[in-house]
């Protein structure tokens, strides 16, 4: 491989890293409140808002039903509105986080629902407000599951980010398509695959280790 290609790979790797971590951060910040809302506003929850709950649930399902590559294109006007451009890393962050947020919210929702209702009852019995219950019971108790779900989200975002080349965002997927596929450069293809596998492994192992540490308490 030429030195230029190595530089190109490093640049693509950093682009992927930036795209994924920025979108993952947004998905985390938006997904957890969304999950908490989905759990607590449902029937029998303690912030009952059944209509809003149903509407948000439908919206989440809608976004999850659309394949990422379609979402990427369909969101172009919105992306331009937010970032002022439709190409580059930041233009990819918009659809990536919009696709990852509902995905992550659903996984976090499952973990939150699995918190023993007895713990919520115990918290009510000590005079906890609804906000205290979210803050001191639901989130900490569901944390291992939420972190496990976040790991899955990040891994699937690494995969999705490869498609971001379609809006000229660069990244490893873009390099693999342009050089590895279209120019038959097998070495580049293999290098990209090795980097992606390593990246996914690091994310997965880190996530698993965090979950194990929390569960071992």
């Amino acid at each position: 491989m030429s030195p230029q290609m190595i530089d190109r790979l490093i640049g693509a790797f950093l682009d992927t890293l930036l795209m994924v971590s920025a979108s993952a951060g947004i998905a985390l910040l938006a997904g957890i409140p969304l999950a908490v809302f989905l759990v607590t506003s449902g029937p029998g929850g303690f912030f009952p808002a059944p209509r809003l709950n149903r509407a948000l649930g439908a919206l989440v399902n809608g976004f999850r039903a659309v394949p990422f590559i379609v979402l990427l294109v369909a969101l172009i006007p919105f992306t331009r509105l937010v970032t002022g451009t439709t190409i580059g890393v930041w233009a990819a962050v918009v659809p990536l986080s919009i696709s990852a947020t509902p995905f992550f919210a659903r996984i976090a929702e499952v973990s939150l629902r699995e918190v023993d209702p007895g713990l919520v009852e115990a918290a009510q019995s000590i005079g906890a407000s609804r906000w205290h219950i979210v803050r001191h019971v639901l989130l900490p108790e569901a944390l291992p599951g939420i972190i496990g779900g976040f790991t899955i989200t990040v891994v699937s975002m690494i995969g999705a980010s490869a498609m971001a080349g379609a809006v000229g965002a660069g990244g490893l997927g873009d390099v693999a398509i342009r050089y590895g596929y279209q120019r038959f450069d097998t070495t580049v293809m293999v290098a990209v695959i090795v980097i992606l596998v390593a990246l996914v492994s690091v994310v997965q192992v880190t996530g698993d280790r965090a979950v194990r540490r929390l569960r071992a308490r």
């Binding site: 007895g118 009852e121 001191h136 900490p140 108790e141």
Partner: peptide, 25 residues
């Protein structure tokens, strides 16, 4: 105060943090 058949202690908190929670709140 209330105590429960299955204790209903918070797994993510130590004994001290569990007992201190009502005061903290």
């Amino acid at each position: 105060g209330m105590i429960f058949q299955h204790f209903n202690l918070l797994a993510a908190k130590t004994v001290r943090e569990n007992v201190a929670l009502p005061l903290r709140i």
